[in-house]
C-alpha cells in the first residue's frame, strides 16, 4: 500500500502547501527583497549596527531579554522544582494558577503592569500610604521588565516541571545511597539533569522577549525595544525598507534561538507577548 498512496498523500498535503507558500514564503521573500530596495540597498541589513538609533534599540532589547530570561529561569526553577518534588493539598491548583497566564496577549499584560505600577497602580497607592510617595515605574525599563517576566514565568515553569518530572527518582536515591547530602544531590544530579530544560526554556523565553510587541506597545515606554522601532519606522517614518530589513534581522535572531531550543528538547510553547 506504499507507492499507491503517494498521489493521495500529495492531495492531502497540497492545501497547506498552497496557503503556506502564497501567504508566508512568498511574502517573506518579498519583504526580504524590499528590505534591500531602500536608499542604502543591501546595506540596510547592517543598519542594525550602523544606525545608532537601531543599534541602541537592539542593545536595549538584548539586555532586557537576557535579564528577563535569567530572572525567569531562577524564579521558575525554585518554584517548579518545589511543585514537582512535593505533594500537598492545593498543589494542583497552584500549578494551574502559575501556568494559566500562558495565553494572555502582550497588550493585556501591559495593562496589568499599569494596574500594578502605573499612575493609579497598586504599588503607587501602597507606597503613597507608607512613605508618602507614589512609586510609578510602569512606563520605564522596570515596567517592561515586570511585564516580560510576567509572560515568561509560566512558559519556563512548564518546561522546568516537564523536565523535572522526567528525571528518574532513582538517580537522586542513588546519589543519597552513595552518601551525598541534600545540597550535593541538587548540584551533582538535579541541576545537570535539568540542563536541557534550562536551555530550551531559556531560548524560548529569550526569543519571546526579543519579539514581544504588545506589552511595549501598551506601556508606550520611552525605551525603544526592537519591535517598537520597527513599528515606528513603518508607521511614522514610512520607511518600509528599513522596517523590512529590521524585521528580517529580528526574525533571524528569534528563529535561531528557538531552533536551538527545539533541537535540544522538542517542545513547542506559544510565543506571543
Amino acid at each position: 500500500m506504499h507507492g499507491r498512496d503517494y498521489p493521495r498523500l500529495f492531495v492531502l498535503f497540497l492545501p497547506l502547501a498552497l496557503v503556506f507558500t502564497a501567504f508566508f514564503l512568498v511574502p517573506m521573500a518579498r519583504v526580504a527583497v524590499v528590505g534591500a530596495t531602500g536608499e542604502d540597498g543591501l546595506a540596510a541589513y547592517l543598519s542594525i549596527l550602523t544606525t545608532p538609533r537601531h543599534f541602541e534599540s537592539m542593545v536595549a532589547t538584548v539586555v532586557l531579554s537576557v535579564g528577563v530570561t535569567a530572572t525567569a529561569l531562577a524564579v521558575s526553577t525554585v518554584a517548579g522544582l518545589f511543585l514537582v518534588r512535593n505533594r500537598f493539598p492545593g498543589r494542583s491548583l497552584l500549578v494551574s494558577l502559575l501556568t494559566f497566564p500562558l495565553a494572555f496577549p502582550g497588550v493585556v499584560i501591559g495593562f496589568l503592569v499599569i494596574l500594578l505600577a502605573g499612575r493609579q497602580g497598586l504599588i503607587g497607592s501602597v507606597s503613597d500610604l507608607l512613605i508618602g510617595d507614589r512609586i510609578v515605574f510602569a512606563y520605564s525599563m522596570a515596567g517592561l521588565f515586570v511585564g516580560y517576566l510576567y509572560f515568561s514565568i509560566p512558559r519556563v515553569i512548564l518546561t522546568v516541571m516537564a523536565t523535572a518530572e522526567k528525571i528518574d527518582p532513582a538517580l537522586e536515591e542513588a546519589a543519597r545511597s552513595l552518601g551525598a547530602p541534600g545540597w550535593r544531590v541538587v548540584k551533582d544530579v538535579l541541576l545537570p539533569a535539568l540542563k536541557p530544560g534550562f536551555v530550551a526554556s531559556g531560548a524560548i523565553c529569550f526569543a519571546t522577549a526579543m519579539g514581544a510587541f504588545g506589552t511595549a506597545f501598551t506601556l508606550a515606554t520611552n525605551i525603544d525595544v526592537l519591535p517598537m522601532t520597527i513599528y515606528t519606522e513603518f508607521t511614522l517614518n514610512a520607511n518600509i525598507a528599513g522596517a523590512a530589513s529590521l524585521s528580517i534581522v529580528l526574525g533571524l535572531i528569534t528563529w535561531a534561538a528557538l531552533f536551538v531550543a527545539r533541537s535540544l528538547s522538542g517542545t513547542t510553547v506559544a510565543v506571543s507577548g
Partner: peptide
C-alpha cells in the same frame, strides 16, 4: 515541519509587514 513552524519563531510584526508589502 521546521518550515511550517517558522511563523511561531518569526515575530508577528515581520509577518504582518510581509503580508502588507505583498498583498
Amino acid at each position: 515541519e521546521e518550515t511550517i513552524v517558522l511563523p511561531i519563531a518569526v515575530p508577528g510584526l515581520a509577518i504582518a509587514l510581509a503580508l502588507i508589502v505583498t498583498y
